Amino acid sequence: MYDEEMRAVARTAMAGGESLNAISKRLGVSRATLRDWRDREGRRPYPSDCPRCTNRQPAATSYAHLLGLYLGDGCLSKHRKEVYALRIACDDAYPRLIDEAVAAVTAVHPSRPVHRVQAVGYTSVVSYWKHWPCLFPQHGPGPKHHRRIELAGWQREIVAQHPDLFLRGLFDSDGCRVANWATRVVGGEVKRYEYPRYMFSNDSADILALCQWALGLLGIPWRMPRRNALSVARRDAVARLGEFVGPKS
Rank of each mutant, 00 (worst) to 15 (best):
Y63V: 06
H115N: 07
A233D: 15
G68H: 07
A93Q: 12
C50F: 05
A22W: 01
K130C: 10
R197W: 01
K191N: 08
G242Q: 04
C176F: 07
Y2N: 13
T106N: 10
A15P: 04
D36G: 09
C53G: 11
G140S: 00
P137E: 06
V125I: 14
D203C: 10
E41W: 08
I207D: 03
R31N: 11
S173H: 03
A152I: 06
G16F: 02
Y94E: 11
F171M: 08
Q138K: 00
L230P: 05
D73N: 13
Q57N: 08
E100L: 09
D39T: 14
R197G: 09
R148I: 08
L241W: 03
R11N: 09
L20Q: 15
A85E: 12
E243P: 00
A179F: 06
L218E: 09
P58T: 05
E189M: 12
I158D: 04
R112G: 12
P143I: 08
R192M: 11
G68A: 07
P110Q: 05
A10N: 01
S173C: 06
D91K: 07
V178T: 10
G142I: 06
Y84F: 15
K191E: 14
A152V: 11
S48A: 15
L241C: 10
Y122C: 09
P51D: 01
M1R: 09
N180H: 13
A60I: 07
G121V: 03
Y122V: 05
Y63A: 02
H162V: 02
H162Y: 13
Q161M: 11
D91M: 05
L167P: 02
R184K: 14
W37V: 04
A160F: 00
